[in-house]
Design a protein around this nucleic acid. Structure first.
Lengths: 211, 211
DNA sequence: TTCAGTTGATTGAACGTTCATTCAATTATT
DNA sequence: AATAATTGAATGAACGTTCAATCAACTGAA
């Protein structure tokens, strides 16, 4: 009996190997054989810990989503607790860490394209989408007239995804520094354009932080 | 010898069958067997006309890009030959026809994720990216101060891609009508915000249409 | 300390399935 | 009859899964 539970260690090894293999060989080239070679473990271990290849792939997707959420929380905690600060944190988090590495980029695309066929993945994707949207709405509400909030939130979300996609695909032609700048520029513009019309409804700082 | 060259007919049949199969079964589930069943032709025909599965897949990607370009040209021709008209045409073209059908949506994602591994696909993707960008720059130049053109073009491009992605993924939760509206709203906003600073450099209507 | 015993972790050869490709045979067209 | 087009059974390679065998860590009795 090993001193400590090896399960989490093995699971992490296999997930990281999977990311590496997808990056190197694409989704079609991602085989159990290659994953086991990359992890230094045997082929049988995948079934043992993940029930099979599909299970490992889903766990890998889940891993990416978890890391994205962690990045988001970290940035949220570090930035000023103002609506503007939160918006900055959202943008920065989406272009930092896991999201930036080309290792993950390919995998995200595959994740998205697979989501339509796996109800499980579709659910994860939807949760993620909603979280970003409601974060944005929450931060925009104090800054914009009510009628402009939803559209602006959708637009920012689309812009983040779009820049992310273009950054991931255009190896180096568009840097994420530029992407972050342009996202923030839009946000400023939207806030100022919106503020001209009418500042906002009247419950801006609702006592403290809601949750 | 058949009366007319059957080659273009067969090629089209196979490409359309491929799109149908990818939509129904995902990329992993896209096999020669299924494609031949969907097209009503035999399995051997694929090698005969496309040299193999890979050739058929690349031809399918190329087909999507061609249709996108055709849509773009059609819209460009129909809209007023003003900078604003061209911008509207660009946005509308990107959310019409092939691009909208969920049949193609999955395939685009796959195309993008595959592009990193096939130099051929990467080239196509880059050409497409550049064409959108330079179309945007060309239309924005008469409307914005020089320093704002590039960033705005990148932002519009990202927004189009982002909304397209979200429309494709969120089956119905975000309609492309809404996406088009929000893209155009941003463009208006950008033009007005930019025009405050300084209209533009002074060669707006360069005689006629350049090409 | 040593060692046989126990148990959970890990291995990887064997197996069966799936799939792309091939090409001799067949069909259709002139 | 001659030629172009098409078929689909046969082939072999690749892959995921399985599971009996092996290994490693630890226990407690000697």
């Amino acid at each position: 009996m090993p001193r400590f539970n090896v399960e989490p260690i093995r699971r992490r090894q296999l997930i990281e190997a999977t990311l590496r293999v997808i990056e190197d060989h694409g989704f079609q080239g991602t085989t159990i054989g290659r994953i086991s070679a990359a992890s230094g473990l045997s082929v049988g271990i995948v079934s043992h810990y993940f029930g099979g290849k599909q299970g490992l792939l889903e766990a890998t997707m889940r891993h990416l989503l978890t890391e994205l959420r962690n990045d988001m929380r970290r940035f949220m905690a570090d930035y000023p607790r103002t609506p503007e600060g939160r918006l900055q944190a959202i943008v920065d988090a989406n272009f930092s860490g896991v999201q930036t590495q080309s290792k993950s980029a390919r995998t995200w695309l595959i994740f998205w394209s697979q989501a339509a066929h796996s109800p499980d993945l579709a659910r994860l994707q939807r949760v993620n989408e909603r979280r970003l949207y409601s974060n944005l709405v929450h931060s925009l509400r104090p800054l914009l007239p009510a009628h402009a909030v939803s559209g602006t939130a959708h637009t920012i979300a689309a812009m983040i995804d779009g820049f992310w996609l273009r950054t991931a695909l255009s190896e180096g032609r568009i840097g994420h520094t530029q992407a972050v700048e342009l996202c923030k520029a839009y946000i400023d513009q939207a806030i100022h354009a919106g503020a001209e019309h009418e500042p906002t409804d009247t419950y801006p700082a609702q006592s403290g932080a809601t949750r």
